[in-house]
Nucleic acid binder design. Structure first.
Lengths: 144, 144
DNA sequence: ATATTATTGTAATTGATTCTCAATAAAGTT
DNA sequence: AACTTTATTGAGAATCAATTACAATAATAT
């Protein structure tokens, strides 16, 4: 299996784009992060390490990473985008606590069947899905 | 089954809030709209009818309507919220074309089982879920 | 080395949503 | 019906994430 770096470099080359230190720094940092991240967090982490990468560059790289299948957007319903790396990870969904914001991940294989069924039924070429479940975690139920 | 208006009025009263013409106008207009809508569309529709309701009021009423279970937010991934009425409608999910933006609705009853399973497994009190599937519709596949 | 042009950082801009504030008006009380 | 209390309103300012313009820089091809 290709490394994330390889995937990204091939994508860059194939598109006639350029390989820059900023892009590589951002990519590296993303793959150091476990779990989810947002633009601000990524920016601060890079800054802490002495990187001079601007937020604008982060905003500019993310669509590329999404497009080449390394990263995906996640919606936690809090006013801005979150992201997670998906390359080499099983597709999963999120269970979110409406009070404390805890995020649990779970897999739901039957959704692949659903995708196939929708493709047949409506003639769609399905690219993916997002499922979020929300509620209150055990701790927050008591606290309410 | 109570009417939407009844549900809303009871909610208002119960909360010690006030019943105002603006709120009723907005509610009425929402229930005239079939399908999905967003704040701008709702605002323009009201304006066209001669209503003086401001966008601020719309933004202020929507959380109330969501809270009392008449309306829900829908994410079409295009930078702003969409809404749909859910009172008296079966819960459904959305299949969206990434190119032309077409939205199809479908029901997926197995997700109720999933909710129960998650509740058991993680001790959550589940409040709901959102599922979006995306891809390319038949027409747009050809056009690509 | 040189030319071409993609990429960068900075700062300005956009667009959706929220907030401030003074004026208004619901609902309860006399 | 008049009075009081205070929630609600509209207008515009403020906020916040995300995008864009622009001039300087630097990555690739020749």
């Amino acid at each position: 299996m290709k490394s994330e770096t390889q995937v990204f470099r091939e994508y860059i080359r194939q598109r006639g784009l350029r390989r820059t230190p900023e892009r590589e720094q951002i990519l590296q940092e993303i793959f150091v992060i476990h779990g989810h991240f947002d633009v601000d967090e990524l920016y601060l982490r890079l800054k802490d390490k002495g990187s001079k990468v601007s937020k604008a560059s982060i905003y500019r790289v993310l669509p590329l990473l999404i497009d080449c299948g390394l990263v995906r957007e996640v919606d936690f319903n809090d006013g801005h985008w979150h992201y997670e790396h998906i390359y080499g990870h099983a597709h999963h969904s999120h269970l979110r606590c409406l009070r404390c914001g805890e995020i649990l991940e779970f897999e739901e294989p039957t959704l692949n069947l659903l995708e196939e069924q929708l493709a047949r039924e409506y003639g769609y070429r399905i690219k993916g899905h997002q499922l979020q479940v929300h509620g209150f975690c055990a701790t927050c139920q008591e606290a309410e």
